[in-house]
């Protein structure tokens, strides 16, 4: 096998060090925040924190009641209504603020549920092997191949006016398969490693091996699976609300788009009605994706886009650095090597 199908193979050395529980407190602290040293991850976490804050305080700081009608019908953004108003004179800025809570709650609950399911199924399948593995893998592959969104739409449409909690549960129960698959693959490769064999040889119980030897080394994969599921859950919830399946009485960004679409906002030129909600979704999605890149690059340093890769050598040539190559910058007087760089591996 010449290639590894993902960056997973490179995880282990750094992760192993991270999993050691006996590090001194001062060192542990420094390491815990190393993840945020990555600019992408830091940006993502900052945006996400902002959204979480809005989810908590949104309904309190909203300048108007999102349902309250007023005489300002279909107004463009102004100082009084930052994002304009709807066909009933409702304040769109307040609707977005109030809707943030529903979006974040559904995203996090569904993400959490799917992550727990994927750990249970993926790690069990990978560790036990044999018939249990075959069965659980087949189950997760089936859920992976069946188109999730149409399934969610159909299940939700059966329930009259589905609440946020129910939507979160439906999404969580249908979107665990991807994480389970990745976790199973990684558990399979961890299972035969020396330190696990050593733990088994010293007579540790299976539960302890899984919880204390294997799970800590899956942290990065679990985290990125969680973030991915949250993205999917948020998109699905907004889609459901946009199509008009889930409850239209509570606000989320999809509900705003639902009304905008239903009232022909486009034909009336009311761009302010659907642009803020879309940008809010895109920004949240970007933040989560950035966190995921951060995790990927934290785990596999090769993926980092290093600084400058074009280097001017002393004799005026330029050499482009590549993975596996280290340019040798020849001193001014000596004869440079023919291609200006040398292979060192």
């Amino acid at each position: 096998m010449a290639i590894s199908p993902s960056s997973i193979e490179q995880v282990i050395p750094g992760q192993g060090a991270m999993a050691q529980p006996s590090a001194a407190p001062a060192r542990a602290k420094r390491r815990r925040f190393r993840f945020l040293a990555n600019a992408k991850a830091a940006t993502g976490v900052a945006i996400l924190a902002g959204y979480c804050l809005l989810a908590v305080i949104g309904p309190w700081v909203a300048p108007y009641d999102p349902d309250a009608r007023s005489g300002d019908v279909l107004q463009a953004p102004s100082a009084r209504h930052w994002f304009g108003t709807t066909h009933l004179g409702q304040d769109i800025f307040s609707q977005i603020l109030v809707g943030t809570r529903s979006v974040m709650v559904v995203g996090l609950v569904a993400g959490l549920l799917a992550t727990i399911l994927s750990i249970l199924i993926g790690v069990t399948a990978g560790y036990l092997g044999g018939a249990a593995d075959e069965g659980l893998s087949a189950l997760s592959n089936v859920f992976l191949v069946i188109p999730a969104l149409p399934l969610i739409i159909i299940v939700t449409s059966i329930v009259e006016q589905a609440s946020d909690t129910l939507v979160a549960l439906i999404i969580g129960f249908t979107s665990w398969a991807w994480g389970a698959r990745v976790l199973r693959a990684q558990t399979l490769s961890l299972r035969r490693r020396d330190y696990v064999e050593a733990a088994r040889a010293t007579g540790e119980r299976t539960g302890r091996i899984i919880l204390f030897e294997i799970l800590p080394n899956l942290t990065a994969i679990i985290a990125s699976g969680f973030v991915g599921t949250v993205i999917f859950a948020v998109m699905s919830e907004i889609t459901l609300a946009f199509i008009g399946i889930s409850s239209v009485s509570s606000w989320n960004w999809g509900t705003i788009l639902f009304w905008a679409q239903g009232q022909q906002a486009l034909a009336q030129g009311a761009w302010w009605w659907f642009v803020p909600a879309g940008l809010a979704i895109a920004l949240l999605g970007t933040a989560l994706a950035l966190i995921n890149f951060g995790i990927d690059e934290f785990v596999s340093p090769r993926l980092r886009s290093g600084g400058r890769t074009r280097i001017r050598t002393a004799d005026g040539r330029t050499a482009r650095m590549r993975v596996g190559f280290t340019p040798v910058l020849a001193p001014a007087r000596t004869v440079p090597s023919p291609r200006g760089k040398e292979v060192t591996k």
């Binding site: 993205i231 998109m235 907004i238 889609t239 946009f242 788009l257 905008a260 679409q261 486009l266 659907f274 642009v275 909600a277 879309g278 979704i281 895109a282 920004l283 949240l284 999605g285 970007t286 989560l288 994706a289 950035l290 890149f293």
Partner: peptide, 14 residues
Amino acid sequence: TFLSSIPYFWLGLV
């Protein structure tokens, strides 16, 4: 990344 975070249907509306 930003483009892929936009829901398809919203991009369609725009």
